[in-house]
Design a protein around this nucleic acid. Structure first.
Lengths: 344, 344
DNA sequence: TTGTACGCGTTATCAT
DNA sequence: ATGATAACGCGTACAA
C-alpha cells in the first residue's frame, strides 16, 4: 500500500493515527517528538498504529507549525575550479551529514546568485544555507548578514565580518607546495584559468599571494601561468620548452600530466611536479604525485558540524575557520629539490 | 532588510501585504496565482505592497493549502558508472529544468534506497521523483507504482510495467560501437567493473547483450573484460599483450587510454579504440576518440520535460522511452576496420 | 471584481 | 500522563 495513503487513497494524518490508537491527536505528536513524557503503554499503542497505517508526518504542516523545515539549502556551482569530482565529494558529504541529522538537502544553483538566497530564505524553504563558490567580493555576503537563517560560507569573501566562513587553508597549501620545490630555483605554477579567475573565486588570490610570498622567502622565481581551457597542451609545451624543471599545478591536472608525458618527460625523473588536488586525482597517474590535498570531504564535514551547532545552539558569533593543509610526499619530485625539512 | 522580515523581525505574511494594500488577504493570493481576474488598479497596489515589504509566500503554508510543494526529488547515486562528470551533468540539467518551471530540487541519496522514496513521498516533501541508478531488479519499482507522486525512472528495470522510464539507448549504442570495429575480427570490451555490476545497474546487461548479439551478427569475437578499479593498468597491459587490436571501452576511459599510451601504443595508428563516453571525455585526449556519447544532458532534459507533462496533465500511461544513440567518428579507429557503411 | 470564512496537518500552550 | 484547542500562512469555495 502506498506510503501515507489509506486504501481509499486518502492521506493518512496524525488524526487517523490518533483514532486507531484511541488517543488524542496531540498525543501522537508528542510520541513522535518525545517532547513530553509518555507512558510506555500509550507509546506502544501509538507506535503500532503509526506502523500499521504507514503514517508519515506532513512536511508542510510541520514546517508551518514548527517554523522548521528540516531542510538545508546548498548553493552550488556546476562548473567550479574544483572539478566535478571535488564538487560531488562536497555535496555527498553535505547530504550525508544532513541525513544523519534527519535533514534534507535542497539544491540551489550558484547561477541564481543573490535571488536564490532571497528566495529560499524568504519562502522559508530551509533552516540553513551552505554557500560554495564564494567570490572575493561576494554580493551574497551582504544578504547573508541579514538573513533569517544561519548561512555558512565555504570560502572567505574579502569582507567576512559578521559571517560564518570555513575553508581549506589554501594559503598554507601554497606555502607547502612551494616549499617542496624550494630547491628548484625556478618554479612555474600552472593554475586556474580565466574562467575561474573571472568569477573572482576567493581562493585564487589567497593561493597566489601566499605562493608568491613563499617563493620570495625561499629564493625561488615563481612564474604564474593561468591555464586556458583550449590551449592547455600548447601552454604546457611552451613552459617545458622554456626550460622549467619544476611545476606546481592547481588546475586541469589530468591534461597537464598528459601533456608532460606526451613530451616524453616523467615527473620525479625528468622534472618535479607537485599538485593541489584530491588524493584520488594525485594517485591516479602512473607516477603518484606529491600533492597537497584539498580534502573536500573534511571541509564539508566540518562545515556541517558547525552548521548544526549554529542551528541547535542559536547562531553563534561570526568566525572564520581554516581546515589545515598537509603535503603528501609521493614520487613526482626528485630527491634534492625538496630541502631537508621534516614532513609536517 | 532581510527578505520576508519586517524591521521588527516579524515574518511578513500575505495578511501584511493585504493590510498595506488595503485589500483582503485572498485578493493578495489571487494576484499572485492569477487564478481569478483582478482589476488593473488593485493588481498594481498589491504588487507594490509586495515589493515594498519584500514579501515571499511561505512554502510550508502554501504546500499545506495547495497540496503542491513545487519540489522535485532527485534520487541520485554518489558513485556511479557514469563518473562524476556525467552525474553532475545530470543534476545540472535537472535543476535547471526544474527552476525554469519555478520548482526546486531536493537531493536524495540512492543509498537510502526504498526508504528514501517512502520518506519523500510519504511526507509530501515533493511533487514528483526522478530516480537514477536504476537496477535490473529494482525494489523501488514496486513502491513507485503505488506512490502518490509521479515517478520517473532514468533507466529500465526488468519489470517496467506501470512505470515511466526513460534512458539513453544503450542497446543501439552497443551495436554502433561494435559496428565501428566490425572489421577487426576480434574485439575486447573493457567495461564496468564488479562495483558497478554488483549493484545490478540495468544498463550493463542491456549494453552487454546487445554488444554480443551485434558481434555475432558481424562475425567478430567479443571478449568482455570487467575492469577492476585496483588493477586497470595491469588488465589493459594483459589485454594488449594478448594481441587484441580493437578496444571497446565503456568505463574508466581515462586510465585505459593512459595505460595504452604508456604501452607505447597510439589509438588510430597502432590499434583501434572506441568508447562509450561523454563528448568532453572523448575529445579530451591527444587522439580524439570515436565514441558513442551518452548525452546525459539530453536524457535529463527529456526526462524533465516528460515529468512536467505528467505533473500538469495528470499522470499519463506508463511508457518506456529511449534517447537515440549516435556515433561520432573521430580518429581513434584505423581506416579499414570500420566496414564502409554511411555514418548514421 | 472583491471579501469572508474555512480547511490544510502540524506543534505547542493551556487545561485537567 | 493525557486531552482540547489555538495558532501557523496560504488557497479557494462561497457570498456579495
Amino acid at each position: 500500500m502506498a506510503a501515507n495513503r489509506s486504501a481509499t487513497g486518502r492521506t493518512v494524518t496524525s488524526k487517523d493515527v490518533a483514532r486507531v490508537a484511541g488517543v488524542s491527536q496531540s498525543t501522537v505528536s508528542y510520541v513522535m517528538s518525545g517532547k513530553r513524557p509518555i507512558s510506555e503503554r500509550t507509546r506502544r499503542i501509538v507506535e503500532d498504529a503509526i506502523a500499521q497505517l504507514t503514517y508519515h508526518p506532513n512536511a508542510g504542516a510541520r514546517a508551518l507549525a514548527s517554523q522548521r523545515t528540516q531542510i538545508i539549502a546548498v548553493v552550488m556551482p556546476f562548473d567550479s575550479g574544483l572539478g566535478a569530482t571535488g564538487l560531488m565529494a562536497f555535496i555527498e558529504e553535505i547530504t550525508l551529514a544532513a541525513r544523519a541529522r534527519d535533514h534534507d538537502v535542497l539544491l540551489v544553483t550558484a547561477e541564481e546568485g543573490v535571488d536564490g538566497l532571497r528566495r529560499v530564505a524568504g519562502r522559508a524553504l530551509c533552516d540553513a544555507v551552505v554557500l560554495m563558490e564564494v567570490a572575493t567580493d561576494d554580493p551574497r555576503a551582504a544578504i547573508a548578514r541579514e538573513l533569517r537563517v544561519p548561512t555558512l560560507f565555504i570560502g572567505f569573501p574579502d569582507d567576512a565580518a559578521g559571517l560564518h566562513c570555513i575553508d581549506f587553508d589554501f594559503e598554507e597549501g601554497a606555502r607547502l607546495l612551494v616549499g617542496e620545490l624550494a630547491g628548484a630555483g625556478r618554479v612555474t605554477a600552472l593554475t586556474w584559468g580565466p574562467g575561474t579567475v573571472d568569477r573572482g573565486l576567493n581562493y585564487v588570490p589567497r593561493f597566489r599571494t601566499a605562493a608568491h610570498e613563499a617563493a620570495v622567502a625561499a629564493g625561488v622565481a615563481l612564474d604564474w601561468v593561468p591555464l586556458e581551457r583550449d590551449r592547455i597542451e600548447e601552454q604546457v609545451r611552451a613552459v617545458l620548452a622554456s626550460g622549467t624543471q619544476a611545476l606546481l599545478v592547481t588546475a586541469h591536472l589530468n591534461r597537464v600530466v598528459h601533456a608532460v608525458q606526451e613530451a616524453g618527460l616523467r615527473p620525479g625523473t625528468d622534472l618535479d611536479l607537485v599538485a593541489l588536488a584530491t588524493d584520488v586525482e594525485a594517485t591516479g597517474f602512473t607516477v603518484p604525485l606529491t600533492a597537497v590535498s584539498t580534502h573536500p570531504r573534511d571541509v564539508s564535514r566540518q562545515a556541517m558540524t558547525w552548521l548544526f551547532e549554529l542551528l541547535e545552539q542559536g547562531t553563534g558569533p561570526a568566525q572564520v575557520r581554516r581546515v589545515p593543509a598537509f603535503v603528501s610526499r609521493r614520487s613526482s619530485v626528485r630527491p634534492g629539490t625538496t630541502p631537508h625539512v621534516p614532513q609536517p
